[in-house]
Design a protein around this nucleic acid. Structure first.
Lengths: 238, 238, 238, 238
DNA sequence: CATGAATGAGCGTTCATTCAT
DNA sequence: CATGAATGAACGCTCATTCAT
C-alpha cells in the first residue's frame, strides 16, 4: 500500500517530467509568457488535458520548476548565516562565504536550466507565470542582504553596508553566470568566487580604510573608476 | 501649407506620445508581453486603428520607446572610448570613466521609465516585443566590454580582463539601479559611481598585486569573498 | 455462488444508487445539462470509470431515475381508465378520478425529487439528457388526454373536449406542485385534488350547457374537481 | 451628429438581430444550454468575435431576447392592477381581466418564439443562461398573484385566495399555449380567455360558497374566468 | 485620417469517454 | 471489477490585425 501500483506512480513521474522538460526548453527559447500550453504538450508528446491533470496552469508549472532551486538556495543562505555567527568567535570570516559560494555553484550545476530561466525572468513585475521566479529573486536578494547585515553586525566587514554589498555581488554574479551560460569567454571562472568574495570583503575594506601605506606604488588606490550602467526595463505579457 | 502640415505633424506627435506613455506605464505594471493593444489604446484614449497607423505592432512601439535611450547610451560609450584613447597620452585614466558615469546617470534621469523597462526585460530571449530591449542590453554590454578592452590594451588597468570587469560593473550597476527604483535604501548613492569605478580599476588592481605590507592586521586581505549567485530550476509535480 | 453473486449484486445496487442520488441532487440544483459526470462521481464518491460501468451516459442515468416514476404514473392512468369504463355502468364518475389523484399524490410522495426534476425539465425540446423526462411529460399528457376522451365518449362529462381539459388540469397541477415544492403558501392543499376534479368535470360541464336562464344573475355554480397530478423534474446544464 | 453614421448603427442592428434570430431558433430546437456560441455565429453568419462585441455571454443574449417581453408583460399586469382598483367602484370585475388577457395574447402574437422559449425554459433552477427566463417566470407569477390579491382585497372574488388561483390560471394557460405552439388541437381557442377568467373569478366563487340549496339540480352557473398567460421575448442589444 | 466594428486563429480550460493498471 | 489517468474534441473567450465608415 505504500507503493500501491508502482506503475501508476512511475507514469505520473515520467509525464510530469516530460512536461517540465518540454516547458523549460520552450521557456528558455521563447520566454515564459510567449509559450503556450499547446507548445508544451506538443513538446512533451502528451494530450492537452494531461497538462491540466498535473498542473493547475502555467504559473503552477513554473512554480514546480523553481521550487527545488528555491529550497536549495534558501537552505544555502541559512547555513551560511549560521556559520557566519559561529565564525565571529573564531575570526574566520571567509569560510562561510566560500561555503555559500560552493553551495550556490552546486545549485547552478544541478539545475542549470532553471537557473537560466531564473536569470531570464527574475526581474520585472511579479505577474502571471513569472511570479514564482520573481519570488525566488526576492528570496535571493533577501538572503544576501541578511548575510551582509550579519557580517556587518559582527564587525566582520567594514565595507559598504549590508544591502548595497549584497546588491553588488548578486548583480555581478547573476550577470556573470548569464554570460557564462551564453557562452561568453568571461575569464578565469574558477577564480571568480574568490574574487567576488574579496571584492566585497576586501575591496570594500580597502576603500574603507584610508589606504594604509602608500610607500609603494599602489597609488592608484584612489583611482576609482566606476562604470555606470544605464537603465532599462522589461515588461512581460499575458 | 507649411502651417497645416505643422498641425498634422503636431497631431501625430501628440497621439504617438499618448500611445507611448500609456504603453510604457502598462508595460512596467504588467510586463510587455502581458499588455494588449486594447489596453494601450484604452489608456491612450485613442481608437484601436490609430495604433496601427503609428506603429507596425507592439515590437515597433517598444523599439520606439527604447531608441532614444539606445542612441544616448551608445554615444556615451563612444565618447568614453574616444576619451580613453586620448587619456592614454596624459595618464588620467579615471576621467573618461567618470564622464561615462555622469552621462549614463543623465540617461537614467532623462528616461527613467524606459530604463526601468530595460531593467525589467533586458535579460532573456530576444523574442517578440522584447527584442529591442534585449538589443539594447547587448549594446550596453558590448560598449562596456569595448571600454575595458581599450583600457586593458592601453595598460591602464591590470585587473580582470575586459569582458569580465565589464560584466561585473554592468551587473552590479543594473541591480543597484533596479533597487533604487524599487525604493530600497541602498546606501550612499552619490558615492556609488566612484565606488564602482574603483571597484573595477582598483579593487581588481589591489587583488592583482599580492598585497604589499601585511604588517598590520589587514590579514583578512586574503579573506576573499565570493558572492555566488544561484539559479536553478527543477520540475516537480503539482 | 449464489451468495457471492448476491454480494456482487448488492455492491452494484449500492453504487448505482449512490450515483443516482448524487446526480439527482446536482440536477435539481444546477439543471441536468449543467451537471458534469465529474461532479456526479465526486458526489457519489466513486471513480469516474464506474459511472460508465453502470450507465451508458448522462441520458441513461436520467432515464433510470425517471423510469420508476414513469411506470407508476402510467399504471395509475391505466387503472383510472379501466375504472372509468366500469364507472359508466354505475354512474359514479368522480370515483376513478379521485383514485387517480390519490395514486399520483402517492407518486409525488414516493419520488419527490424525481418529480421536482420532472417539473424542472419536462418542457422544452426532447434533446440530450432531457429526453427521458420529456417523454414522461408526453406520457402524462397522453394519459390525461385519454382519460378525458373516455369520459367524453361515455358521456360522463359535457365540458371542453378531452385534450383541453387534460391540458388545463395537468398545467394547473404541475405548477401547483412546483410551487408547493418551492415552499410557497399555496392554500388548502388537501382540498386541491377535489377542486381540480370538479374544475374539469363540473366547471366544464356547466359551461357546456348554454347557460339556462340568464334572467337572474345566473348564480355561479361550481363544478367539481379533478386532481391531476403529474410528476416531474428537469435540471438544466451549463 | 444625432445619427452620425447611420450605416454603423444600421449594421449594428442588423448583426444584433441576426445573432438573436439565429440563437432563438437554436435555443428552441436544442435548448438554451445545449447551444454553443459557435452554432449561433454560424447560424448568424458572423465571426465568433462579433458575438462578444454584442453580448457579454450567452446569458446576456438570452436576457436581451427576454427583456422586451418582460417589459410588456409587466406593464400588462400593472395596467390590469390599476383597472382592477378602478373597477371596484363600478363593480365590473371581468373587464380588467379580459383586458389583461388581450394584452397577453398580444404579447404571444408579437413575440411568439420568445414565448416558446419561455415556455421551454422557465421552470427549473435559475442557473446560467436560463436565469433571465426564470426571472420572467417569477415576474409572471408575482404579477398574477398580485392581481388575485387585489381582487380578493376588493371583495371582487370569493374564491381561493390569491396565490392559488394565480397559480392555477398561470399553470393552465402556459400549458395550453405550449400545446397550441406544439400544434395540438386544443379546442375552441377563442373562447379560452373567457373560460379561464370565469374559472378563477366564478368557479372559485361558487366553491367558496357552501353550495346553497342542493334541492334542485343546483343549476350550474359557470363563472367566467380567464387565465392570461404570458410569454414573450425580444432580442435587443448589449 | 480617426474610428471602432469585423474577423478568425488561437488560447486556456473543460469534459465525456476510453483504457491501462 | 474499481480506479483514475489519458485523450483530444470542443468550448467560451481574447486579441492582433484589417477595413468599412
Amino acid at each position: 500500500m505504500a507503493a500501491p501500483s508502482g506503475k501508476r506512480a512511475e507514469n505520473r513521474r515520467v509525464r510530469t517530467e516530460a512536461l517540465q522538460r518540454a516547458a523549460l526548453g520552450l521557456f528558455l527559447q521563447y520566454g515564459v509568457e510567449a509559450v503556450t500550453i499547446d507548445q508544451i504538450v506538443d513538446g512533451a508528446r502528451t494530450a492537452k488535458g494531461s497538462f491540466y491533470r498535473y498542473f493547475r496552469d502555467k504559473t503552477d508549472l513554473v512554480a514546480s520548476l523553481v521550487e527545488p532551486l528555491k529550497r536549495d538556495v534558501s537552505s544555502s543562505f541559512a547555513r551560511c548565516a549560521e556559520r557566519l555567527r559561529e565564525a565571529s568567535r573564531e575570526g574566520n570570516v571567509a569560510k562561510p562565504y566560500e561555503g555559500l559560494a560552493q553551495d550556490l555553484i552546486r545549485c547552478v550545476l544541478q539545475y542549470p536550466d532553471v537557473v537560466r530561466l531564473y536569470l531570464h525572468e527574475s526581474r520585472g513585475p511579479k505577474n502571471g507565470a513569472r511570479a514564482p521566479i520573481v519570488e525566488l529573486a526576492e528570496a535571493v536578494l533577501d538572503g544576501a542582504t541578511e548575510l551582509s547585515n550579519i557580517a556587518h553586525e559582527l564587525g566582520l566587514v567594514r565595507g559598504l553596508v549590508g544591502r548595497l554589498s549584497a546588491i553588488v555581488v548578486v548583480g555581478a554574479s547573476e550577470l556573470i553566470i548569464t554570460r557564462l551560460f551564453a557562452g561568453d569567454d568571461v575569464g578565469p571562472v574558477l577564480e571568480m568566487p574568490g574574487e567576488l568574495v574579496s571584492l566585497v570583503l576586501d575591496g570594500v575594506r580597502a576603500r574603507a580604510t584610508p589606504a594604509p601605506a602608500p610607500d609603494k606604488p599602489r597609488p592608484a588606490r584612489a583611482a576609482k573608476k566606476v562604470a555606470k550602467k544605464p537603465a532599462k526595463k522589461a515588461p512581460r505579457r499575458r
